[in-house]
């Protein structure tokens, strides 16, 4: 443990922690999007999936327990990701104490330059999203027994849908740079796949985002509706 803490003191190690926790969150985001796509199969399929998450691991573990293990794992990943990002951001501010009177950007992508604020938008969204569809505290007619109802009636509000869409576009940029950056940070650049790293990042950022954005759009268009 003290060895691990010693390792974490190094900014390079913090970056690796950011990359590994980011990959865990990426895995979650992909699974989350695919699970939500069940709403296209109707109310029953969607609610069954939501219930399935709670009965995961039964009968070996009690109802709802494995879901909590996953939630704690995700929470730890989020905290590590943000903590390392915060510490490295402070370090980077200190490393340029006097700024340039004139500064040009040469080839840094828009995505790379918006990682920090993009991250803050995503964090705000995640908090809102949990209060909206997990706890229901900001949902006008939340029904804990019917997730499908909560999603559809929630997205019928244009402003709510719009916020979901904007936040997921921010996530797209974050994922695009994050995924590519992860390969660099972890030293994964074997010639056999080196050229595929950017296309991979672009493809997965696009897939996740198109999937996620399609849900509010489908509700607004009346493709997915309450029965």
């Amino acid at each position: 443990m003290s060895r691990l803490m010693d390792f974490y003191r190094s900014p390079m190690a913090k970056k690796m922690v950011m990359a590994v926790s980011g990959v865990m969150l990426f895995g979650f985001v992909v699974g989350h999007m695919l699970g939500n796509a069940k709403m296209y199969l109707g109310e029953h399929a969607f609610n069954e999936y939501a219930e399935g998450l709670r009965s995961l691991g039964e009968p070996f573990v009690p109802h709802g327990q494995l879901l909590w293990v996953a939630r704690i794992g995700l929470l730890v990943a989020v905290l590590l990701h943000i903590w390392s990002a915060w510490q490295l951001t402070l370090l980077n501010r200190r490393a340029r104490p006097v700024s340039y009177a004139k500064k040009k950007t040469t080839q840094a992508t828009y995505a790379s330059r918006t990682m920090r604020w993009g991250g803050v938008i995503i964090l705000a969204f995640v908090i809102y999203h949990l209060m909206h569809l997990t706890f229901g505290s900001v949902h006008p007619n939340f029904d804990a027994t019917n997730p499908f109802h909560n999603v559809v009636s929630g997205f019928q509000n244009v402003w709510v849908s719009l916020f979901y869409i904007v936040a997921n576009i921010a996530l797209a940029f974050h994922l695009y740079h994050g995924l590519w950056s992860m390969f660099q940070s972890l030293g994964l650049d074997h010639p056999s796949y080196k050229g595929l790293r950017r296309p991979f990042a672009a493809l997965f950022a696009t897939l996740v985002t198109v999937g996620n954005i399609s849900f509010p759009l489908a509700v607004l268009a009346g493709v997915v509706k309450l029965s």
Partner: peptide, 10 residues
């Protein structure tokens, strides 16, 4: 006192 790389590639 160097900073930490964020893969801007600048």
């Amino acid at each position: 006192s160097f900073g930490s790389c964020t893969n801007f590639t600048e």
